[in-house]
């Protein structure tokens, strides 16, 4: 018993070091911009760079659009599959997992072939429609996370009986979806939303190949030309991601604290 505990601790410490040491190294390096002293100069430079603010703002906006589009697509789909088409679940799960096995570069090349400026639907013809195409791409990319989070939430409540209870009380399907189902899977939707947010903020391939001014390509550009700022940006990106994860936990705990043990 005691030996197995020691083994578990050793494994945990090795795992933690594997993740933490590079992060500490990156953080320490980001503080060395001023020769001979530690400072937050690299962070100051990054945070006052108008390109940083523009690209970060653009990515935040795209992330919000992606979250809304993802939720509108995934929640009713997961609800309907749980309620009326449970036999389709394996097929839908397979489709939602495809973005994990198909590299983003293949997806984006597919988009470029389908939606280039001389195609039947020229989504890349101007900046706004390319933004739309990029948000569609992000929805695809975030689908495995969003669908899984929402589906888990749906499974944790008795969707079928709650729907029937709503129906027998005279409610329409829309009323049931918005008044009964949505509020009860809110935490699951939020989890999916924050995961989507974290993915979109750092995404490079799609934004770069569609030539959009997102945070991912900005990170790459800075990394190729500067020394200390990329480390500062990497730490900032980590903090944003961790903040998202933290919010998922806090919201999840708030909800579960309301429930009986």
């Amino acid at each position: 018993m005691k030996q197995s505990k020691i083994g578990a601790w050793i494994a945990f410490i090795i795992g933690a070091l594997y993740f933490i040491v590079p992060l500490i190294g990156t953080f320490e390096f980001s503080l060395r911009m001023k020769r001979g002293e530690y400072s937050f100069e690299a962070y100051r430079v990054v945070l006052t760079d108008p390109n940083f603010l523009a690209s970060f703002g653009y990515s935040v906006l795209m992330a919000l659009i992606t979250v809304i589009m993802g939720a509108v697509l995934v929640v009713p789909t997961a609800y309907w599959i749980q309620l009326r088409l449970p036999k389709l679940r394996p097929i839908v799960e397979f489709i939602t997992l495809l973005p994990l096995v198909m590299p983003a570069i293949i997806i984006v090349f597919g988009y470029l072939r389908l939606y280039n400026s001389s195609s039947w639907l020229p989504l890349t013809a101007n900046a706004r429609s390319t933004d739309l195409l990029l948000s569609f791409s992000y929805v695809t990319l975030a689908l495995p996370y969003m669908y899984r989070a929402v589906e888990t939430g749906m499974r944790s409540i008795d969707v079928r009986t709650l729907t029937e209870a709503g129906e027998i009380l005279g409610a329409s399907m829309m009323t049931i979806l918005f008044k009964v189902i949505f509020p009860n899977v809110r935490v699951a939707i939020l989890s999916g939303a924050f995961l989507t947010f974290a993915i979109v903020i750092g995404e490079f391939t799609m934004a770069s190949l569609l030539n959009r001014p997102a945070f991912g390509p900005y990170l790459q550009l800075i990394g190729a030309n500067r020394a200390y700022e990329p480390s500062a940006l990497a730490v900032i990106a980590f903090l944003v991601t961790w903040a998202c994860m933290g919010i998922i936990n806090v919201v999840g705990n708030l909800k579960s604290n309301k429930r009986p043990a």
């Binding site: 008795d158 709650l162 029937e164 008044k179």
Partner: peptide, 13 residues
């Protein structure tokens, strides 16, 4: 019609 279910089916929210 009104219905009472075996699993209560009260809306948790």
């Amino acid at each position: 019609v009104g219905m009472v279910f075996q699993a209560y089916a009260l809306f948790p929210n």
